[in-house]
Amino acid sequence: MNQITALDKTVQTNKTKISARNVNVHYGDSHAIKDVNVEIEDNTVTAFIGPSGCGKSTFLRCLNRMNDTIDICRVTGDIQIDGENIYDPRVDPVQLRAKVGMVFQKPNPFPKSIYDNVAYGPRIHGLAANKAELDEIVEKSLRRGAIWEEVKDRLDAPGTGLSGGQQQRLCIARAVATEPEVLLMDEPCSALDPIATAQIEELIDELRNSYSVVIVTHSMQQAARVSQKTAFFHLGNLVEFGATGQIFTNPEDPRTESYITGRIG
């Protein structure tokens, strides 16, 4: 079944995009991420799995410094993107986030028109010289978000008026419109029905051609279907990290095995 699909995937090695060394995260006194080391490759979908509260989102948010917005959150260790430490004091987190886009668990379109939702990023980053270019970016992004056909006739309608699945695809289109190099997705399908989920999974597979994609998911099947690499988190520790096929068929750590079998069983 799913393990088999995962096995089929050819595991090729790509160059390292993000490398995290000895990352620790504290929320006040609680230690949420403990000494995590991981290498995330370019043109690869990496899945983070693990039980609720194990720190998947926390670690994901370290990668684009969204944790900076939480006052009590303290991140230590070394996270490099293309060999540059993103926690270096010289790094402007805003510039970093243009490079490392994010899609959130709950679809969160701006309460503006569909067009403006997608155009917002390119506008603030000055990616389009004129209206025609901007139109082009918007169309391209909506196409990549697999939602162009559904919304092309009502680009002026509010993004919040779309269905949940459409909103999430709009958010993905919004994220790709700024042309990031890494796309972080925190449970992007948790609010979606199977059809919308399938559409987004297909989309993720396509996005792999241009980006390094990191996806947090609670669905083993989804991790097996879309990812090439899988990381299993447990109580703030990275228990196991490796090729998806190997993790799902032949896990080394007993905790990984019990989690996977317990859920898929």
Partner: peptide
């Protein structure tokens, strides 16, 4: 204003001030 709106703006690389004034 739901925090998700701020996250959305920061997530596409808006500065805090842009997030506040635009959204």
């Amino acid at each position: 204003v739901p925090p998700s709106i701020r996250d959305a703006a920061l997530g596409v690389g808006a500065s805090r001030m842009q997030a506040v004034f635009h959204h």
